[in-house]
């Protein structure tokens, strides 16, 4: 069995989810290679070579891969697919974008967002917003899989795989990058953070996130998330949304502030180790999953919490 893991990265930093995808690949077993396609991404290739269990890193460097658009990425992965039994990528917005494109061209039914490997052809994946877990067996000869990183342990970073430079594939001239507005933050990334503190609709404004959530986050070294309601209301940007259709997180400590606990939100955080809920409505569903619940007005409790830390 030979497995290709497609790296998720920002051209200078490899995502934690990529390493965790290698963990999932290790559970399938076989030779594991990592593809790093980017622009000026040799540092990333170096990071990938350190992931324990990786035998070889393939590094394709070209301006066309700078933003990892689906069309050129799919062409590149397809040009390599013949040598592999399994193609895997983290189920982030990059992997979700190009992997089904690869699968369709290979005439394979992709297995999305797996949370466990039962055997080389059988996997568990959440369905219905995580309200049920399906165990599925694939009959495709080649497997195309996306992996929910939070469900797998981070591997050791003591490997020393070789890095092989490979050429670019064809570039379909049907899509081009125009611009991006990336959220700049000195706080940790949501998906890798040990502590996450999220705010909901009860915050009532973006200013209140600044005033009540961020100071506590900074004291704890925590990442900041939000419920869909808070994002839809425009209090914070979309990339902060925790939930089934946003980001799935599983930190050591998750603090939900002024979040009622819609199923959609719970699907994104219920695998956290310890959950704290602060909400003034004692009937809020969030308390049913919280290890520690505090029934209180967040506008009083948060400044108090900041002082107590």
């Amino acid at each position: 069995m030979t497995i290709l893991v497609i790296a998720e990265h920002s051209n200078d930093h490899l995502s934690d989810a990529t390493a965790k995808t290698v963990s999932a690949a290790t559970k399938i077993g076989g030779d594991i290679h990592v593809l790093v396609a980017g622009s000026g991404a040799s540092a990333v290739a170096g990071q990938a070579a350190k992931i324990a269990g990786v035998a070889k890193v393939l590094h394709a460097d070209d301006d066309h891969y700078a933003k990892q658009l689906a069309e050129p990425m799919a062409e590149l992965i397809l040009s390599l697919a013949g040598d592999y039994d399994v193609l895997m990528a983290p189920a982030g917005t990059d992997g979700k974008n190009y992997m089904p494109r690869v699968a369709a061209k290979l005439d394979v039914m992709q297995i999305s967002d797996i949370i466990a490997v039962e055997s080389a052809d059988t996997f568990q994946r959440p369905i219905y917003a995580g309200n049920a877990i399906a165990t599925v067996q694939s009959s495709d000869a080649k497997k195309v899989i996306t992996v929910r990183g939070t469900a797998f342990e981070a591997p050791a970073m003591d490997g020393s795989a070789s890095v092989e430079t490979i050429g670019a594939a064809d570039f379909p001239s049907i899509s081009e990058f125009v611009k991006e507005e990336l959220t700049k933050s000195d706080r940790p990334e949501l998906q890798g953070a040990k502590i996450v503190i999220s705010g909901g609709r009860a915050l009532a404004s973006g200013e209140n996130f600044e005033k009540y959530i961020y100071p506590v986050a900074d004291k704890l070294g925590a990442a900041v998330g939000a419920s869909r309601a808070a994002v839809d209301a425009g209090y914070v940007p979309n990339d902060m949304q925790v939930g089934q259709t946003g980001k799935v997180v599983a930190p050591e400590l998750y603090i939900a502030v002024g979040i009622s606990g819609a199923i959609q939100h719970l699907a994104g955080m219920k695998d956290s180790k310890v959950i704290v809920a602060i909400n003034k409505d004692e009937e809020a569903p969030i308390f049913q999953v919280a290890d520690y619940g505090l029934v209180a007005d967040l506008f009083e409790a948060m400044p108090e919490l900041e002082k107590a830390l």
């Binding site: 394979v108 297995i111 049920a132 877990i133 599925v136 694939s138 219920k270 004692e282 290890d291």
Partner: peptide
């Protein structure tokens, strides 16, 4: 191409305590 072998409830989280 995919055969569903089974569908199960996700692990339940018990409610903890109120402080």
């Amino acid at each position: 191409r995919l055969k569903t072998l089974k569908v199960t409830e996700p692990p339940k989280r018990e409610a903890g305590i109120k402080v």
